[in-house]
């Protein structure tokens, strides 16, 4: 038997899908992937997906932005050209700091937001000419699809999935 066979079980309801995932998990089968048209809350926990670390990334990116803003304002306004513009003190960064707060804030947000989104696009492999990889076009409309790899246990798996109210069960040879 080839090992690149998978079963696609299709569901038309998120609650039914959740029950099916539970059933398959309890029978100790590995679920390769679940494609859903919208976020099904609790699905990631049920599948045992680790929590995403994107928020931590965003925090670090924000710190980078803040540091960049502090460096930039200090370099341009205090180090490079310490001029008197309208009586604003330019002796040290801290004496003119209040005027730099808006820039510091905006750059923190700018770095945090954009670098996090770029990280997300790279981690989830999303970009303009990327080919979509959902196996059934209906999974972006109203069909929920669970993909389970087959390891010489096709009948057993199909029988199990038949008990989960799937609307369609397909065995597919993955290339």
């Amino acid at each position: 038997m080839s090992t690149n066979k998978v079963i696609h079980a299709l569901y038309n309801d998120d609650d039914v899908l959740m029950d099916a995932v539970k059933t398959v998990k309890e029978a100790n089968h590995h679920i390769e992937e679940v494609f859903t048209p919208f976020p099904v809350h609790g699905l990631d926990k049920l599948l045992g997906l680790p929590h995403t670390r994107l928020a931590i990334c965003a925090f670090l990116y924000g710190l980078t932005g803040l540091a960049f803003a502090i460096w930039m304002t200090n370099y341009m306004m205090i180090d490079n050209w310490p001029q008197d513009i309208g009586g604003k003190p330019s002796f040290s960064w801290i004496v003119n700091m209040p005027a730099f707060v808006p820039i510091m804030f905006e750059l923190t947000v700018f770095f945090a937001a954009h670098l996090m989104v770029i990280t997300f696009y790279m981690r989830s492999r999303l970009w303009p000419f990327k080919e979509a990889e959902n196996p059934d076009p209906r999974t972006t409309d109203d069909i929920f699809l669970m993909e389970i790899p087959v390891h010489n246990n096709e009948e057993e798996l199909t029988a199990l999935l038949n008990t989960t109210n799937a609307v369609e069960i397909k065995v597919i040879e993955k290339h």
């Binding site: 976020p39 990631d44 997906l49 928020a55 959902n134």
Partner: peptide, 26 residues
């Protein structure tokens, strides 16, 4: 082209929701 190859995997949605929440917070 516009959808960037979105496929709607469970992991994609998990990240998607996190990104939405952090972006909302920002």
């Amino acid at each position: 082209l516009l959808s960037f190859g979105w496929s709607g995997r469970a992991k994609d949605w998990q990240r998607f929701e996190e990104v939405s929440l952090v972006l909302a917070g920002l």
